[in-house]
Design a protein around this nucleic acid. Structure first.
Lengths: 106, 106
DNA sequence: ATTGTAATTCGCAAAATTACGAATAATATT
DNA sequence: AATATTATTCGTAATTTTGCGAATTACAAT
């Protein structure tokens, strides 16, 4: 029982959880790996690599975009996707910090 | 259009996504931070820190347990929770590897 | 045996996620 | 203007997640 903290979560936890959520699907991980490796990558290239329909791939890309991890530049007639480097660094740092917290002895 | 890879995702992507999913809620992040910091931590201690009901906290703990990130030892009348160090290391390594992939130039 | 404390499980509801096909938009090319 | 290519959006369905209160389990102490 006892008194629950009535307020919300701390902001860092919220941000980390939000990033983690964006990574919480194998298709999205695969997309990020592909973007990290390839010089240039349009929707079609990504779509080809995934066992999903166009529309579903588009949704996964949108989620990554909403989380700030990727961005899409229009390059008619294609859309060129790439990692948002600034936020990728942010994510990297937040993760690193989280996993570097010392775990108590025993 | 184009040939989709008909098979499933690669195993590493699946595992990383699974771990990320476990981290994809601020309450679960908060739980992990608390466990990392405190020497000893029973259900009640965790429950007190979160703005959630007992049953919901129990569910979040179960998810972390199912992902292998934490474990609970019975210590009547309490249940002592702690991080599963072996799997924590595994998670850490998988994350590190993922975030260390070099991003293509420009 | 009864009572109290600690935590989990059950049953349920609301919301979010995942996925698809069809329709649409946006732009290049003919 | 008509057609083809590329990607997004819409509508919908199935599943999963999140959350709660009530009931239950498990064990200690009285």
């Amino acid at each position: 029982m006892a008194n629950h903290k009535q307020n919300v979560y701390n902001e860092k936890d919220e941000q980390l959880a939000k990033y983690a959520k964006a990574l919480a699907h194998p298709a999205r991980i695969a997309i990020l790996r592909q973007l990290a490796l390839m010089d240039t990558c349009c929707f079609g290239d990504i779509n080809c690599e995934l066992p999903l329909s166009q529309s579903t791939v588009s949704q996964h890309l949108l989620e990554l975009k909403n989380a700030g991890i990727i961005q899409g530049c229009l390059e008619p007639p294609k859309v060129k996707y790439c990692i948002n480097k600034e936020n990728w660094e942010d994510l990297k740092i937040i993760m690193k910090e989280f996993f570097n917290t010392e775990i108590n002895k025993k």
